[in-house]
Design a protein around this nucleic acid. Sequence first.
DNA 1: CTGACTGCAAACTCTTTGCAAACCA
DNA 2: TGGTTTGCAAAGAGTTTGCAGTCAG
Lengths: 134, 134
Amino acid sequence: MKNRNTIQGALILEKVKNLKGHACAEEIYEAVTHEHPNISKATVYRNLNRLSEQGQIHKIEVPGSPDNFEFRTVLHYHVKCERCGRIFDVDMPYNHHLEDHIANKHGFIFTGHDIIFKGFCPDCQKDLHKKHNY
Amino acid sequence: MKNRNTIQGALILEKVKNLKGHACAEEIYEAVTHEHPNISKATVYRNLNRLSEQGQIHKIEVPGSPDNFEFRTVLHYHVKCERCGRIFDVDMPYNHHLEDHIANKHGFIFTGHDIIFKGFCPDCQKDLHKKHNY
DNA sequence: CTGACTGCAAACTCTTTGCAAACCA
DNA sequence: TGGTTTGCAAAGAGTTTGCAGTCAG
């Protein structure tokens, strides 16, 4: 039940730590591949999930997009571009007490929340302007 | 480009309207099957997506769960049980101006947001109490 | 030694798509 | 008729899982 130190696990954690923002499993897989070409994608998924269960990294689940992972100390929200599907950070303080405002909890135990904003990123705004095909 | 009135489309819209809460495509497919046994799942998906694009119904996208659909007039939020994965409505007023509080919009155009709370539903709390296997 | 971890491939879930036939206007 | 919609099956994306071999403690 306890962790073993494997090269793969260490590399994956390191890659996520060195990310500026977030990346999906595929991107992390590619980054690790450079140093450890034989790694399997299943191992990347297993390590990412293990690390996020242990709270060492954070998994951002966004519908319709692959899961993203990031190493962070401060919780924050994300926005998904409705056109290109990319995920960006949102510059808004995390509200730790949002669930306190729920009127009738119906016996639910609330453990947290995610907010996913929708919108159009600058790149896609340019494209839409040009192409008028939306 | 304009809609045709098909039996399938009418049945699907009716089923969603008659839902008390939300249901996923699979559940709607099963409901429609009772009256129209030959319907294909692809048709259900196509109609649900069409209806939600036209704003006649609303699609709730939740990471890790199948998309849910509902007929509603008032926007609201949802909570996903971390154990059974079911989706429930949350008793909290929708904040239409949440995106106004974003400090630096980085050129993004925000069009809306979803909040997905996490927690444990009453049923699963009972189970956890009993089984202690979480 | 022994259980945890790995690599590989296959399985899985949910959803979309290609295509010919059926259908509505 | 002519463009939509349907049913079917196959494809697709992302992720998980079964299994035998490998490795850390």
